[in-house]
């Protein structure tokens, strides 16, 4: 709905109906410290019972509130109705640091996992940043990004920039002082989730499946172990993040099932780009982008030979996992157990 449509809705509808439809409206009035409103009236009429001195502290008159409330509804209504939907991202190549052309055109689609490899300083982060800012020949690489095969209009670009990409990295921590349940509910609410309880529950279960050790609903997120936090972040990004693209900057070996972690993201229709040199993750990807001197130098489809290598790597990884578990339980390692 447009701003005008919301305005005529607000002018004719009792406030309580609007608030039932969009519970987030409660926040709007809280932000203005308006506690008691006659919500059985329309907003315009309800406001005539509100102390106008209070509103003046916020620099507002009644008509300002009416307008801002409709702007608020327009913004959040759009959020609930459409969000950001993407099927494919196409990268039209630019030039590397020496000014030579790179791979001309390549695409990635939802459900695909792409790894990005290259030495330090080669331009991996630049590539990810070009995607994030929907480059349009206006970054040092000259790359252009198309969404679903076409260039975006200015308005679409404005809306999408900053919402396209979710990020996960090793340095991230929880800082909110909330329990796991409160945390997930808060995120779900901000997504204007229709089916909040269900999503929250699925997300919690998935996180517990990924984490080695289970955690309860009522633990503070800040008290989770490294592996548990990472598991919760990954499940939350898969189930609740608004962004269709997920950039992962290595997943450390924090006792979580790394392979399952990226599979979950791919299954939830995300485009997963992962900057890693971990063979387990790099080979799990469908494609590998090789960056050299600032340009995309090669794209390698993970071959069936490499998939066989992956099986070997997984066996090695299982051995390491097993050894870690033994150490964790305070046991001793024996060589002959290693051989099998």
């Amino acid at each position: 709905m447009s701003f005008e449509a919301y305005m005529s809705w607000v002018l004719t509808t009792p406030l309580n109906q609007i608030m039932d439809r969009y519970p987030v409206c409660h926040d709007f009035f809280q932000n203005l410290r308006i506690g008691e409103l006659h919500t059985e009236l329309t907003l315009e009429n309800a406001l005539s019972h509100v102390d106008s001195e209070l509103l003046q502290e916020f620099g507002m008159e009644k008509h300002d509130i009416l307008r801002e409330f409709c702007e608020f509804l327009t913004a959040f209504g759009r959020e609930a109705e459409q969000g950001v939907r993407v099927r494919t991202v196409t990268i039209l190549g630019g030039t590397d640091k020496a000014g030579d052309s790179e791979v001309k055109e390549w695409s990635i689609s939802v459900g695909e996992i792409i790894s990005v490899v290259g030495p330090t300083g080669s331009g991996k982060s630049r590539l990810l940043a070009d995607i994030e800012c929907l480059a349009n020949g206006d970054t040092p690489t000259g790359r252009k990004i198309l969404i679903d095969g076409r260039a975006l209009s200015d308005e679409e670009r404005f809306y999408m920039e900053g919402r396209l990409v979710a990020q996960l990295s090793q340095n991230m921590n929880f800082v909110m002082d909330l329990t796991v349940r409160e945390f997930l509910e808060m995120h779900a609410r901000s997504r204007m989730s229709q089916n909040m309880e269900h999503t929250v529950k699925r997300c919690y279960e998935q996180a517990n499946e990924l984490a080695g050790e289970r955690f309860g609903w009522d633990v503070k997120v800040t008290q989770l172990s490294g592996g548990q936090s990472r598991a919760l972040m990954i499940a939350d990004t898969a189930y609740m993040s608004a962004s269709p693209i997920v950039l992962i900057d290595e997943i450390e070996n924090a006792g979580i099932d790394r392979r399952k972690a990226i599979d979950i993201l791919a299954r939830k229709e995300k485009i997963v780009l992962i900057s890693t040199h971990d063979p387990l993750l790099a080979l799990r990807a469908d494609k590998r982008i090789v960056i050299k001197n600032g340009g995309v130098n090669r794209m390698i489809d993970t071959s069936s030979e490499e998939k066989l290598c992956l099986e070997e790597v997984e066996k090695l990884d299982a051995v390491l996992y097993w050894m870690r578990e033994k150490l964790r339980r305070g046991e001793e390692l024996k060589r002959e157990l290693l051989v099998k």
């Binding site: 987030v24 926040d27 709007f28 932000n31 608020f72 913004a75 959040f76 959020e79 979710a166 990020q167 996960l168 340095n171 991230m172 921590n173 929880f174 800082v175 909110m176 945390f183 808060m186 995120h187 901000s190 997504r191 936090s229 972040m233 939350d236 990004t237 609740m240 993040s241 608004a242 962004s243």
Partner: peptide, 16 residues
């Protein structure tokens, strides 16, 4: 240094 969820909730609160 914070999680994606915290970034999204933060942005939501700004948009409010």
């Amino acid at each position: 240094i914070v999680s994606q969820a915290e970034r999204e909730v933060f942005a939501f609160n700004i948009r409010q």
